[in-house]
Write a protein that binds this DNA or RNA. Structure first.
Lengths: 225, 225
DNA sequence: CGTATAATTGAGATTAGTCAATAACTGTGG
DNA sequence: CCACAGTTATTGACTAATCTCAATTATACG
């Protein structure tokens, strides 16, 4: 849920890389280094191996929308047309697998059963986006922030045990992802802290002290059909 | 833009139906008749042939999210897992083509070049969803309503000429689609009317009197990269 | 025609945004 | 290792937008 890159998790996106005959290679990015810009040819797509990568779009009026934070296992650039529709750079030092588009197409051609995998990946991506828009549509600021934190915990392996999550992105990044302002993000971090649900560890990390209440806040539960 | 079903337009979704050996058949729905419910098996997907179909989801707390209004050419249920994640019913009398999932999978298997088409459809869908969430994130009530009306004009063939669009959905449907309340929708219809941009024709139709200004309102222009 | 439903309008409450000031971090050079 | 400068985050006071609740009007349908 809650983001627009593909969480490959059980889908094993890199099987495409495998299928394509090992043509893909690895690229290392320094923090803040760009991976691609809007308008660049979609010759490659990328799978994050390590680190956190930011995908965003800047509009003519200066508004910015952060589309996703891509964690290891996430695929970036899937389903783009001729050129990318957004910018992409690294938040931390990162390593990404570069997967040539044409090798992917060839892979599908040669191994039709991959078509189903593509269907599954597409499905996954579409579901993520639906969840994201439902969140943006229906949730209050604090509910959005709670959802975001839960998503981060789920994506950060190191945090599963310690209940501490690092925030490699700035408040502005979070705000532009959740459709809020930095002030509102900050105020609601404070509110969560005051409620005893989280503790702020410096400015770049959060410790979850009451996962249940955090989950309650985030939940926009499914219907009871 | 602006919605989450697939606009097949140039993608010719029904080529899947063709590819599957003409196994798909047509179903007719009366207004308000359900097509499927959340939790139903995703044995089939559907292509709208005629009429308007509503896709929505109801949450435990009573909040409702209208996910899309599907017009002729739109595909419903693409990219769902085992069971549907939402409800679906007809707003008007409608005809839909029933496309068995397994025939689609078989089609992909037999004609790998359809894999690319699926990629294109998925890309299209993902792009639509991204635009939708940007809209929900960044646009004001009147901008959302303007975008919605432009979308309706574009989708309703009969309206292209007359500049009059019918609204087969209620204000509540529009509100739950745009992430607003019915009062806000109503107030902003009035505002658009007062500004001379539209005229309300009864309660179920709108005449666009100044397309340029409507477009200006809706625009959340792309960046200048 | 009359009743039920849907839409509009109004007044007040709530939420998030804006602008401004302060505080906390980060990284650099002394 | 510390001080400083630049950036980022927090907090406060105020404003603007949307929501809520309530009343009224319009529409649809038996």
């Amino acid at each position: 849920m809650l983001h627009s890159v593909i969480e490959t998790e059980n889908l094993s996106a890199s099987s495409f890389a495998m299928a394509s005959g090992g043509e893909s290679n690895i690229r290392t990015l320094q923090a803040h280094e760009a991976l691609f810009y809007e308008g660049d040819d979609t010759a490659n797509l990328y799978e994050v191996i390590e680190g956190v990568v930011r995908v965003y779009k800047i509009f003519a009026d200066g508004r910015r929308q952060v589309i996703s934070f891509a964690y290891p296992g996430d695929l970036i650039g899937f389903g783009q047309a001729e050129t990318f529709r957004f910018d992409c750079d690294a938040l931390t030092r990162a390593r990404v697998r570069v997967i040539p588009q044409n090798s992917l197409l060839r892979a599908v051609r040669e191994r039709p059963e991959l078509g189903e995998k593509i269907l599954a990946i597409a499905a996954n991506q579409v579901n993520s986006m639906q969840d994201l828009s439902i969140m943006l549509c229906r949730k209050s600021a604090i509910e959005r922030l709670a959802s975001f934190l839960i998503y981060l915990v789920r994506r950060s392996p190191e945090s599963m045990a310690s209940s501490q999550v690092s925030l490699p992105m700035t408040r502005a990044d979070i705000a532009d992802y959740l459709g809020l302002t930095i002030e509102t993000v900050s105020r609601n971090f404070t509110k969560l802290r005051t409620m005893g649900i989280i503790a702020l560890v410096g400015t770049g990390a959060v410790q979850v002290r009451d996962m249940n209440r955090l989950r309650q806040l985030s939940e926009c539960e499914d219907s009871i059909h």
